[in-house]
Simulated assay, not measured.
Amino acid sequence: MKQYRDQGAVGALLDEYEKTLTEVISVLSDISNQKLIAIVDDKTKDPDCRSIQTILTHVIRAGYCYGIEIRKSLGEQIDYVERKTLNSVKEYQTGLQEMFIYNEQLFIDYPNLNLEEKDPDKKIVVAWGQRYNIEQLLEHAIVHVLRHRRQIERFLIKLSA
Rank of each mutant, 00 (worst) to 15 (best):
D48H: 13
N114D: 04
I142H: 14
D79P: 04
N33S: 04
T22A: 12
F107V: 03
L74F: 11
A38N: 11
E116M: 14
K35W: 02
C65D: 12
Y132G: 07
D41T: 06
H144V: 01
R147S: 08
L36A: 02
I25W: 07
R61V: 07
N112C: 03
L28P: 08
I124Y: 14
I31W: 00
R83D: 11
D109I: 05
L146H: 14
T22N: 11
I78A: 10
K118H: 04
Q53L: 08
V143A: 10
F100G: 02
L138H: 13
Y102K: 00
I152D: 09
G95S: 00
L28Q: 08
A127H: 08
G75S: 13
S26G: 06
Q136I: 05
R131W: 03
I25R: 14
R149G: 12
F100N: 01
T54C: 07
G95L: 00
E139Y: 13
G95H: 01
E139K: 15
L36D: 02
Y66A: 04
D30H: 13
V40W: 09
L36M: 06
K90E: 05
V40C: 08
F107P: 02
T85R: 09
L28T: 02
K123C: 09
L36N: 01
L21V: 07
Q53M: 06
E82W: 09
L36F: 07
